[in-house]
């Protein structure tokens, strides 16, 4: 019994960490841009495909997909490339909607997500089918005195480290200061000789790269990756950010843990729960939004005409 409970708690924390990696990106981008970057989930899920593609194209000599070392090396390259992809999308498309009504940016990024998904489907060899994705880390590890699979431990630790680094960056560095300044008031920041364009691109890189880590762990956890996984991870990541309160980093983490908790609970207790899990998750989202429209930790914005 305790074993089962411990196993579920481990699943909950692992899933929560993976969702949090995607959710903080949503929250960070919203805080700075003031628009929802709906295709963030699709950008995040680019990384497993990039990693797979790179391994197949270049890594055959190093052992290919079956060699964890080669996989990890190419995964790191894929993370960097995904970050750059985020910047590229900002320059090509999202930039145009900075001053447009929020609705337009929203619809445009939803469409952008679809385009990314379809591009994977058509350009990646055999893109419509699921592709096996190996565990990046194998073996067992000790965590809090428990013997757990090293993969879960790594996912949780990497998430903690990545989010802590993000916190430090936001609160302790010059770039973080600039990001916070732009998110508070874009025009005032410009008057302080901060170039908002640079801050936007930096934010896109950071958010997309962190999301890419989430995408890699997500596929690694599932053992495979398919072009439409991004709907799942994007919607859940966004929901987590919204439940916690958009723009709030701690909120995104709380939201992720809440949603992954519900997810794990439903899958463990409700019969045939796996096929209903999104129903429960979204009922939670709708419920939270009805009672706390700005999310659990979000600040309520007072509007002026």
């Amino acid at each position: 019994m305790t074993d089962l409970v411990a196993q579920q708690i481990l699943n909950w924390l692992t899933l929560g960490s993976i969702y949090a990696l995607v959710a903080v990106g949503f929250s960070l981008l919203f805080g700075v841009l003031n628009i929802i970057h709906f295709s963030h989930g699709d950008v995040s899920l680019m990384s497993p495909f990039l990693a797979l593609g790179l391994v197949q194209a270049l890594g055959a000599g190093a052992g290919g997909i079956s060699s964890p070392a080669a996989m990890v090396a190419f995964a790191i390259v894929a993370i960097a490339l995904t970050g750059l992809l985020g910047v590229l999308l900002d320059i090509l498309i999202i930039q145009r909607f900075r001053t447009a009504p929020a609705m337009m940016a929203l619809v445009a990024t939803v469409a952008l997500g679809i385009v990314l998904r379809e591009l994977i489907r058509h350009l990646f060899p055999n893109g419509s089918n699921p592709h096996a994705f190996p565990r990046l880390v194998t073996g067992d590890a000790m965590l809090f005195g428990f013997r757990v699979p090293a993969f879960n431990a790594t996912a949780i630790l990497v998430a903690i480290v990545a989010v802590s680094l993000l916190f430090l960056m936001l609160n302790r560095t010059r770039l973080g200061l600039h990001i916070r300044a732009v998110s508070l008031d874009r025009d005032a920041a410009r008057l302080m000789a901060i170039n908002p364009g640079r801050v936007f691109r930096a934010t896109f890189f950071i958010a997309s790269a962190i999301g890419a880590i989430g995408g890699l762990f997500f596929s690694s956890y599932a053992g495979m990756v398919r072009f439409d996984f991004s709907i799942d991870i994007g919607l859940i990541g966004f929901s987590a950010a919204v439940v916690g309160g958009l723009g709030s980093m701690p909120g995104a983490i709380i939201g992720s843990l809440l949603i992954s908790g519900l997810d794990t609970l439903v899958q463990a207790t409700v019969p045939n729960g796996a096929s209903y899990r999104l129903v429960f998750v979204f009922l939670l989202v709708i419920g939270v939004l009805v009672f706390k429209p700005a999310g659990l930790l979000g600040r309520t914005v007072t509007e002026k005409v």
Binding site: A102, L106, F238, P293
Partner: peptide, 21 residues
């Protein structure tokens, strides 16, 4: 109670819930 992005999420969620049901 909700608007813009939040409302969009609610409608997307509604669509997914209906589809799963």
């Amino acid at each position: 109670r909700t608007k813009d992005s939040y409302l969009a999420l609610v409608t997307i969620a509604f669509g997914v819930v209906i589809h799963q049901l």
